[in-house]
Structure formats: structure tokens, C-alpha cells
Amino acid sequence: MKNVKQIASIALLTFFVGSTLSCEAKSKKEITLATQALVETKKPDKNVVKVALLLDTSNSMDGLINQAKAQLWDIVNKFSYVKCGNEDRPQLQIALYEYGNSTIEKQDGYIKQVIGFSTDLDEISEKLFSLTTNGGDEYCGQAISTSIKDLDWGKNPDNLKMIFIAGNEPFNQGKIDYKDATSDAKEKGIIVNTIFCGDYNQGANSYWKSGAQLTGGEYIAINHNKKVIHIDTPYDDVIITLNKKLNKTYVSYGSLGSSKMALQSVQDDKAAEMEEAVMVKRAVSKSSRLYNNASWDLVDASKNKNFNVSKIEKKQLPKELQNKTNKEIEAFIETKKIERKNIQQQIKEANQKREAYIAKNQKEGSKGELENAMISAIVKQGKSKNYTWDK
């Protein structure tokens, strides 16, 4: 009987530890050897941050879309510093939906998945830049409900799962009640953050604030037409030059290789067309752990434990490597890996100086409205999952 009580007590302790720690902070230090011996534990899936962006693309939202294009890399760069407790750094997955656009089928509620959860930052950028605005009806409840049903949110309770929905029409329109949609989100551990494009009180009175509060999310009102003021720094040209060198360290392979390498270049150009500062921020993202292209780049692919160059068909390699031996190819990859690491480090060092310069010269309120809204919510909600930010 005494043994039964001891086992029950240890099991209860295990449940308590598992329930109060997040972000895979359930390290071996937190679980006693006795617990490990008596309770069979299953390691949860790798920690992932899942962010779904639901953007209103009706006629009045050009400013919002432009802010999203300009500030995508600010959001990515913020996540590049996040830690799960004192251990792992989580993976970032972003999904994108547009709603309220009359070019989308009415039977779909004028809602369209632009890209499902993805870690491919170039593809996410491509899809974001493809968005255009057109008049339509905005059904926030249905947009939230659709994203919950369509996307694979996973079952790991430690993952940070967030929806950001932005728009400017009443939140209670459409056949699906926003209260039902947010209730479903809360049940699945998804936090809904609402961003009203307009006056704070107007948004609150049209249920945007209520839509956020029902899941413990943030309600923020922004001026979506406000022009983002980018501060030029003496380090911008240095980072842009380093980015060009960084691109030369990529070694394409497989069926996706050439097209993905071309996409990388195109998205550089898209960022540069907006403003030089946007290209700089993108280059900083490309120097981070979150910019990983193992599906088409041999250098990133070689970091995987199961990577074996001998398993890649010669015809899947760049022409300059097809006549090389496996050892020669491995040596080539290693050279590019070292070169990339050095360039990325130089970008990071230049960016530290750039950020210090900006902090010294930036006027209050000059940051992007959408960027401020999202980062504020991310940091606050990340703390509930034991997330910390460092550099």
C-alpha cells in the first residue's frame, strides 16, 4: 500500500511539473530520477511558434499590405532571438490568409489561404508581395474559423500559437459568429490578436476588442496608412554588400534548386524596391538561424545528421560539381559553409552597430505601426510559454 502511495505521489508530481512548465522547459533537471524510473514519458514535438496572419485585402487596405511587406523581416528578426527557457530555440512557421477581397469566391466567404504554415521565408515573402486589394465583404469570424480548420496547429500544448487578424470593418459580420470562432481557437490553445486599422474606440465599439479578449489576446488599433520612417545608417551599404557575398555561398541541388535560387534573388529585389532599409532587414534575417534552405541548398542540407552526398544523383547537382568525387564535393560544401558562417557573423556585427545607431537617432513613434502591434503581443504572450529574448 505504501508503495502504491509513493507511485501515486510521484505521478502527481510529474503531472504538476508537466502542467506548469512550457516551451520544452521540462528539462531532465526538472524531473527526478525516481520519476523517470516510474513514469514513462514521451518527449513532445520540437517546439514551434505558429503564426497565422489574416489580412484584409479589400480596397481600403493598401496601407496595411504595404506595412506587412515592409515589416515582415522585423518580425522574423525578433523571433530569431527567442529561446525556450534556457535551452532550445523554436522553429518559426508562418501562414498567410487574405480575406474581404471580391476576387475570391463568395462561396468561400471571400477568404483564401495564400500559404499554409511554412518555414520558407522566401516563399512567404513571395506570397506576401503577391497580395493586391479589391473591394469585398469582410467576415472576421469566418476567416478565423477557416484558418483554424485548414491549418495543422499541432497538439503540443507548449507551442506558441497565434492568429493576427487585421482589418477595419465590424468584427461581427458574416454567417459565423466571432464568439464561436474564438471559442474554438481558445479550446485549441490558439491566441487571437486583433489589429483594427483605424480609431481605437471605433474598433472597440465594433467588437475587435471583444474578439481579442475572448482568447486572452491583444487588441491594438493602428494607423495603417502611416508611412514607416526608416533611418538610414552608415552600416546599410556594408550589410547589402555582405548580402551579395552571402548569396554566392548557396549551392543549389535537386529539382527545386535553380528555381529556389532565382526566388531568393527576386525577393532581394522586391525588398530593395520598397526601400534600402527593407533590404537591410531582409539581409539580417538571412544571417539568422531561421533562414534555412535545406530543401534546395547543399550547405544547409549538410547540417542534417542524415545528410550523405553519395545519395544525391550527380544530375541533381550543379554542373560544376557533377564530375567531382564525393570527397571533392564534401570539401567544396565545407568551404562554402565556413565562408557563409563568416559572412553571416559580419552581418550580425554590422547590424548590432546599425541598431545602436538607430536607437540613438530614432524619434518616438517612428517605428512601423504593424510591427509595434505584433511584436508587443508576441513578447507578452511568449512569456506565458517561458520564452525569453536575447542576442
Rank of each mutant, 00 (worst) to 15 (best):
N3D: 04
N3P: 02
V4Y: 05
K5F: 06
A8E: 06
A8T: 05
A8I: 06
S9I: 08
A11P: 01
A11C: 12
A11D: 14
L12H: 05
L13A: 10
T14Q: 10
T14E: 11
F16H: 08
F16K: 13
T20H: 01
T20S: 13
L21I: 01
L21W: 01
S22V: 01
C23Q: 03
C23L: 01
A25C: 10
A25D: 09
A25S: 09
K28G: 14
K29F: 03
I31R: 15
A34C: 01
K43H: 03
K43D: 03
P44Y: 05
D45V: 12
D45N: 13
D45M: 10
K46Q: 03
V49A: 07
V49H: 02
A52D: 09
A52W: 09
A52F: 08
L55S: 08
L55E: 01
L55T: 00
D56F: 06
T57D: 05
S58K: 09
S58Y: 01
S58T: 11
N59F: 01
S60N: 12
M61L: 15
M61Y: 02
D62Q: 08
G63R: 12
A68C: 06
A68P: 07
K69Y: 02
L72C: 10
N77G: 11
K78F: 00
S80A: 10
S80G: 10
S80Q: 15
Y81T: 08
V82N: 13
K83I: 00
K83T: 00
D88T: 07
R89I: 05
R89V: 12
R89K: 07
R89D: 03
P90R: 10
Q91R: 14
L92A: 08
L92M: 15
I94Q: 14
L96M: 08
Y97C: 13
Y97Q: 05
E98A: 11
Y99C: 02
G100Y: 06
G100T: 07
N101M: 06
S102G: 12
T103I: 15
I104R: 13
I104P: 05
E105P: 02
E105H: 09
G109V: 11
Y110G: 01
I111Q: 04
K112M: 08
V114W: 00
I115G: 14
F117P: 05
F117K: 13
